[in-house]
Design a protein around this nucleic acid. Structure first.
Lengths: 137, 137
DNA sequence: AGTTGACTTCGAGTGCGCTTCAAGTTCTAG
DNA sequence: CTAGAACTTGAAGCGCACTCGAAGTCAACT
């Protein structure tokens, strides 16, 4: 049984996560990483499997609109240990509700845009038909 | 038959649109209004029915993430007249695709968050069960 | 006519999330 | 061993979309 321990350089991590190296360092500076990143050469970062998983979850929270401020709260709870699971659950549940609300709003606005598009489609089709008629004259 | 011509002050418009009076003036400054807003007292704005409809559509575009820059392009097309309907259709269609993409991404991230929440729910339930057990001792 | 509150302009300020810069250090390939 | 690419830090800068402040004008009520 071989355990494959992945360890990525910052640019590999950037590729893997879709974040820039700048953003990865920024997140670390902001205290969004669980612990301190291992340093292979005592200066160059090496990202572990755990780091990859963690950053991946951070991006899920970010892409659903959670502000950095709240990410900080969440990471602090995780660092504080198992007895904060209630608080973490509360935080995530609250966030989920806001995401759902956001989805409802975007979907509703999208419907209005759909209607507008449909309108333009008929307008454009009519204009094209008219132009074809002119060509026949 | 009575035609009810609505005409709102800026603060009424703010209430009606959900935007602040600051934002309404800002939009106007940025050239996002179709024409110039009527001035009742030659200084105080009066928003017409048409203005209300227009701002309402602007907010649909904004709430789906269209940047101000693109709103400007759109309003310029509308101002330029009927023969830009093809370009407007293209702009809106492109935006719709980006909104759909955005919805897909958020939905996917939300699923990951759902899974995490489910995990915490069992953890919290277990901790509570354990605590109850301790109380019984 | 006076007071209070809503309105005006224009420029500056804010918060967010990166992003870039500068100057130096370290790794890697030949 | 050396050249060049990749990495390091800390601070400054940027783009976006508002948001606020100051100083003054106008409206509506008593």
């Amino acid at each position: 049984m071989t355990i494959t321990e992945t360890s990525l350089s910052i640019s590999q991590m950037a590729d893997a996560s879709g974040l820039s190296t700048h953003t990865l360092r920024y997140y670390e500076r902001e205290g969004l990483m669980l612990g301190s990143i291992e340093r292979a050469s005592s200066t160059h970062r090496r990202y572990s499997d755990g780091d990859i998983t963690w950053v991946s979850f951070l991006t899920k929270l970010r892409s659903t609109g959670m502000p950095i401020r709240d990410l900080k709260l969440y990471v602090e709870l995780v660092r504080a240990g198992e007895n904060t699971s209630g608080a973490r659950l509360a935080l995530l549940t609250r966030h989920r509700e806001s995401v759902r609300q956001q989805l409802r709003e975007v979907t509703a606005s999208l419907e209005a845009i759909d209607i507008k598009i449909a309108l333009y489609e008929t307008t454009v089709a009519e204009r094209e038909a008219q132009q074809t008629g002119q060509e026949q004259r």
